[in-house]
Amino acid sequence: MIEIRDLTKAYGERRVVDGLTFRVAAGRVTGFLGPNGAGKSTTLRMALGLDRPTSGTALVDGLPYARLTEPLRRVGALLDAQAVHGGRTAAGHLSWIAASHRLPARRVDEVLALVGLSDAAGRRIRTFSLGMRQRLGIAAALLGDPAALLLDEPVNGLDAEGIRWIRTLLRRLADEGRAVLVSSHLMAEMARTADHLVVIGRGRLLADTSTADFLAENGRRRVRVRAVDPAGLAALLAEAHPEAVPLGDGAWDVPDADPGELGALAASRRVVLIELSVTHDSLEEAFMRMTADAVEYRAVTA
């Protein structure tokens, strides 16, 4: 299990990670979400002992990463799939990582097979696509058969088949009892993959919740309603739901309404409805709403 406790990283006055606390539990996929520049990568780098926290701690099974005896057996990490030497072959790259822990050579073949790169084992990495590099990075993370995985944006550069593959893989790794943390800036993707969500913005914790709860709270329900007599409906909504928004074709969008109540209300006023449907906010919208104040770089709309 990985435990982040009151973790802070400051560069001068700028706090990239600001008092972050959460845990990555075994047996589930935790999605680590935030807009670009939210501090996800810095958090992962501190968890791996690469960057020193300004304050706070990041512990793996109760110990700082640097004090683990065989770190690659505890934590497998993919930080940047491009951070490989293009002159090495895929097998060569994995073999030096394996050598650091005296892992058997067959382990290199095993993880290459696991990520579907067996045929490319002898090819130089510089000929690899980004998708292949992501697979190689995941292979490297799995080398030590670790109890926990930290993957930074592993979906980047993968095609549809690759994304489905990684979704299945993450599920399986969690089902095997591992703690899996996957960072992403894509809300919808994470909602499909993760059991639990940790959302940060500007280095601060915005949400730490199960995916189901997050969907229930943030996938805001809206009712779309249309009537035979648009004027009658407009009058009714003006009175009961002033927040309703006309959609142009005589239909109205009513946020946070209950379809049953709305239908009953229309019936009591003898307004004949020809459409009454429930939609949910897209998760991407919920995510943007949540992180709206925490987005670091935003284009200004003139």
């Binding site: 791996l48 690469l50 770190p71 690659l72 490989v84 650091s100």
Partner: peptide, 16 residues
Amino acid sequence: QEYASGTLATSLAAVP
């Protein structure tokens, strides 16, 4: 070459 290619992070993750 570890700094140029970025493998230093992987190296230090393996030998912290």
